[in-house]
Design a protein around this nucleic acid. Structure first.
Lengths: 353, 353
DNA sequence: CTGAAAGCGCTTACAG
DNA sequence: CTGAAAGCGCTTACAG
């Protein structure tokens, strides 16, 4: 019969405390504490005896007590302003995973764009003496509906706009876009068009600028980009505009770099409706690598992955550095994106005949 | 000049403690504590004086200290096994929002289908003496990759399979499906077909059974359902099969009830490709009310909303009841779905001419 | 090399 | 009606 919590030796009194360990090892609780933390000096044999006792009792120090003393709760707050989590859940997964082996946990606060709710959550986090806060949002150029400056704890921003002197982690949109376009160029395409979201979005301007720079650098012809809502309809619009212009005697594009996967999805559908085959006649690349959409596309869509989980991990590490007083350069930090090549740009034939 | 934390009176020593409050009110910390908690008896005037002192100092009791004493951390664990959060982030938002004014916070653990990671997160939660755990998943008929029974704290399951004697919260799939079909019947449709996901999924069988029962009850003809992957391709397949059967002399459907929004989306596209107009010739209803897809569909898609946020709120309340020792009936509890009528079934003409 | 004491911030019997 | 004391589980100077 297993006695996982050593309850038999101590009565059914919940998890073992350092008191139980000290008792079993025949030392004082001070010695037990020092033995377990590797601090202080003592005979190796004593330390070993305490260690064994702790192991026998499945002792795990109560973080609540530790926090009260150390004035560090080893907990952080995770503020998110995303409804469906498409962007922020992967970030949060990265944060919690990256902090796990540092003994730090994260309180989740979903604030649904509601300033009052956000303030309540923030107050609750500060009450709990979180060591720091990570703020995430849907949109890089929009701040959260609650002010996070002047807080008694450090704040790291991910995928949302913070004050200029704050640590902010963002995907390297320009690098991602450039890689996508260079991939198209490398596959021999010369007329590379671009369809994206509203250019009021900062990411749209970044991705467009990188596209423009890459084709200019390669000496390829400039083509007017098409902007519209973040929807498949924009993919349809873009194809109509670009290919109808073609019917006026101009050469039509042989590649389309899209600002997100839904636009790419719409474009591929529109191309098919026109009798054009992807990737034979036109290659298409999306952005965000939203697997659900990218795999749904026929053929599967090449897309730029934002490495959101890695972004979350980096945010956790940066916040920890700040908490521990290690220097952390303020400002926006860009993490590389990864191009995920699939069939829409000629890669990985897969289920194709 | 504001002195929010009363630091001027106490030196720059962080947030006010009950000590500071007692000092300012001229009472002992015991009295201060009782005054603030409404416990014990004392002169109204004393209680009032303490209250004012607490307000002046912006005093908020340290939950860490309170937890150490009360053996309740006022924190719960939130285990999620969803990658993009489509289903679980709304649930989590409901949980955190519903628990906020009860002073309970939630630790997020994203476990990515990884048993080792899940166990580590679980250990961390137990170390932190969480009062309870809410487990959520993508799929109702799949357990999480870690066993949650025999834990020293109560567990509530949402959208994932737990042991039979556990409290489990689920959407009322049958009621949702029935309402969708009754809505189609009420709009005068007689031949109501059904396309859904793989019937290895429990929800698929529930939704199909409700559809079948509703049309049988209304005396409408039975039509073989079409099952396939959870993708738009299945919508295409279903339309092909159902309408090609029609060309063999059988009457074709005038309504299509789909097992999720993506299938509905594919079906609507396929119908358009056949020259059939939605909702004039065929009405279509989806399931899940995934706004991103439902709004993207042309015309916008009528769909069954799972009320995930409310599910989260209810889960939080149920867990709290369990934590506080209040009786909570075990087993699966079903919360009603809501039909969201849009243009694909003739409602809300909206942007239509 | 080891332990007694103080203390983190709070609450709760128990005295007065 | 109010306060001194003990204690939640732990760590850290400080003595011995």
């Amino acid at each position: 019969l297993q006695d996982l919590f050593g309850a038999g030796a101590r009565g059914a009194a919940g998890p073992a405390t350092i008191h139980d360990v000290a008792l079993l090892a025949g030392v004082s609780i001070a010695t037990a504490s020092k033995a377990l933390n590797g601090s202080g000096r003592m005979k190796d044999e004593t330390r070993e005896r305490v260690r064994r006792a702790a192991a026998d009792l499945a002792f795990r120090p109560n973080p609540l007590a530790r926090a009260l003393l150390s004035r560090r709760s080893f907990a952080i707050g995770l503020l998110t302003n995303d409804t469906y989590g498409r962007f922020t859940l992967p970030v949060m997964a990265g944060v919690t995973e990256g902090l796990l082996d540092r003994g730090v946990s994260a309180f989740l606060c979903a604030i649904d764009d509601d300033p009052v709710l956000a303030q309540s959550h923030l107050d609750a986090l500060l009450d709990r003496r979180v060591d720091g806060i990570i703020a995430t949002g849907r949109r890089v150029d929009r701040p959260l509906p609650v002010a996070l400056d002047g807080l008694p704890v450090p704040v790291v921003y991910v995928l949302t706009e913070g004050p200029p002197d704050a640590v902010t982690l963002l995907p390297d949109e320009a690098q991602g876009a450039r890689e996508a376009v260079e991939h198209l160029i490398a596959s021999g395409r010369r007329r590379i068009a671009h369809a994206s979201g509203p250019d009021s979005f900062h990411v749209v301007r970044e991705r467009s600028a990188a596209w423009q720079a890459a084709i200019a650098e390669a000496g390829l012809p400039a083509i007017d980009p098409v902007h519209g809502p973040w929807s498949e309809a924009t993919g349809h619009t873009a194809v109509a505009r670009l290919w109808d212009a073609g019917s006026a005697g101009l050469p039509t594009p042989d590649a389309l770099f899209c600002g997100n996967d839904q636009i790419a999805r719409g474009a591929i559908d529109a191309l098919r409706e026109r009798g054009l085959e992807v990737p034979r006649d036109v290659v298409v690349v999306g952005f965000d690598n939203w697997e659900l959409v990218a795999r749904e596309t026929r053929p599967p869509l090449t897309s730029v992955d934002l490495n959101l989980k890695e972004l979350g991990r980096a945010a956790g590490r940066a916040l920890l550095a700040l908490v521990e007083g290690r220097p952390e350069p303020p400002g926006a930090r860009r993490l590389p994106c990864t191009l995920r090549v699939r069939e829409s740009s000629g890669g990985e034939p897969g289920e194709r005949a």
